[in-house]
Amino acid sequence: MMRGLASQLASRLFGGGNNGYLRGRTYSTFRAKEELSLEEEAERKVGWLLKLLFAGTAAAVGYQFFPYMGDNLMQQSISLLHVKDPLFKRMGASRLARFAIDDDRRMRIVNKGGGQELLKMLESAKDDRTRKEALKALAALSNSDEAMRVLHGAGLVSLVKSIPDSSMEVDIQKYRSAILKRCQDLRYDTTHS
């Protein structure tokens, strides 16, 4: 009797014979899958938390160091203008043209000696590509009234007027014209050189 009752109970819970084993196994596998998905979800959430923590830390560190990197790169660009190789001079002038995006940066370039070095670079340039990069950087600096006043005092107008026209580099004429127009707009004398 006891045996019959146990077998009935087992067949009701797990089904009969091999089906009972498989059904019990399926139940066990379902529970394991559920536990795995919960673990995976927890790992995913912890992973996102760690990523956000890392990104926040990187942003805080970057916020502290990027302003100094900008000044260092600006100073390095000005230092490249001292090198004798025209390639390095062009690289320095090109960087300075990209840095000169607002009046504050333009004045920092001029105050660090970049304007004077660009004028020296333009004066000693032996090829059109070097002249073009120097004029491009000077044209970018000339968008600031204060920087233009300093550059004009250093002889910008006479130097720009003395640059020969180039049939190879049309940008030279474009930058020359932009600088001379800016001088006229600020009422600097461009007739005498």
Rank of each mutant, 00 (worst) to 15 (best):
R12F: 14
R12N: 09
G15V: 05
G16V: 10
G20A: 09
G24L: 08
S28T: 10
S28W: 10
T29H: 03
A32D: 06
A32G: 00
S37A: 12
A42V: 01
E43H: 11
R44K: 09
K45N: 12
G47R: 15
L50S: 12
L50F: 09
A55W: 09
A55M: 11
T57H: 08
A58Y: 10
A60W: 07
Q64P: 00
Q64A: 15
F65V: 15
F66C: 08
G70W: 10
G70P: 00
G70L: 12
D71M: 08
M74P: 09
Q75C: 00
Q75H: 06
Q76M: 05
Q76L: 09
L80E: 02
K84E: 06
L87E: 10
L87Q: 08
M91K: 04
A93H: 03
F99N: 06
D103E: 14
D104F: 06
M107L: 15
G113V: 01
G115R: 03
Q116V: 01
M121L: 10
S124F: 10
D128E: 14
K132L: 12
K132C: 10
L135D: 04
K136L: 13
A137Y: 05
A137T: 07
A137R: 07
N143Y: 06
D145S: 13
M148Y: 04
R149Y: 04
V150G: 01
L151Y: 04
G155T: 01
L156D: 02
S158C: 12
D171A: 14
Q173S: 15
K174G: 00
K174W: 14
A178H: 10
C183F: 00
C183T: 05
Q184H: 05
R187L: 07
D189S: 06
D189M: 02
T191K: 14
S193D: 04
S193F: 05
